[in-house]
Simulated assay, not measured.
Amino acid sequence: MHDDLNTLDLTTLSDDQLKKLIADGRAELDRREKKCKQEASARIKALAEAAGLAVTVKDKVQKRRGRPPKNRDQ
């Protein structure tokens, strides 16, 4: 597959083929990222358990919504 990827000429693809390739690539990257996070979380929990600790691994930090804080210098 690596040889095909190195010789893939994107200019020969139709717009729809290129869009599908991009969408498929993004989906694969998302799948790999999710798997990597799950594996890291499992390793962290195993290390903590081996040390007699209990941990909770959160997936993402909540983003604050609304306006950004005002700059005090202005």
Rank of each mutant, 00 (worst) to 15 (best):
H2C: 12
H2W: 14
D3T: 09
D3F: 08
D3R: 11
D3S: 08
D3K: 08
D4Y: 09
L5W: 05
T7V: 01
L8N: 04
D9F: 08
D9C: 10
L10A: 00
L10P: 00
T11S: 06
T12D: 10
T12W: 04
T12E: 09
S14I: 00
S14C: 03
D15Q: 07
D15K: 10
Q17M: 00
L18P: 01
K19F: 03
K20L: 11
L21P: 02
L21T: 03
A23T: 06
A23K: 05
D24S: 08
D24T: 08
G25T: 07
G25N: 04
R26Q: 14
A27W: 02
A27G: 07
E28A: 11
L29P: 04
R32K: 13
E33G: 10
E33W: 07
K34M: 04
K35R: 14
K35T: 14
K35I: 12
K37T: 10
Q38Y: 10
E39T: 10
E39P: 00
A40P: 01
A40S: 10
A40W: 06
S41P: 06
A42L: 11
R43E: 12
I44K: 00
A46C: 07
A46Q: 06
L47V: 09
L47A: 07
E49R: 05
E49G: 02
A50I: 02
G52E: 12
G52M: 05
G52P: 04
L53E: 12
V55N: 11
V55K: 07
T56P: 06
T56R: 15
T56Y: 15
K58L: 13
K58E: 15
D59F: 13
D59S: 15
D59W: 14
K60I: 12
K60S: 14
K60N: 08
V61W: 15
V61K: 15
Q62K: 15
Q62N: 06
K63M: 09
K63N: 11
K63E: 14
R64E: 12
G66Q: 05
P68S: 01
P68C: 01
P69M: 03
K70E: 02
K70Q: 07
N71P: 05
R72H: 09
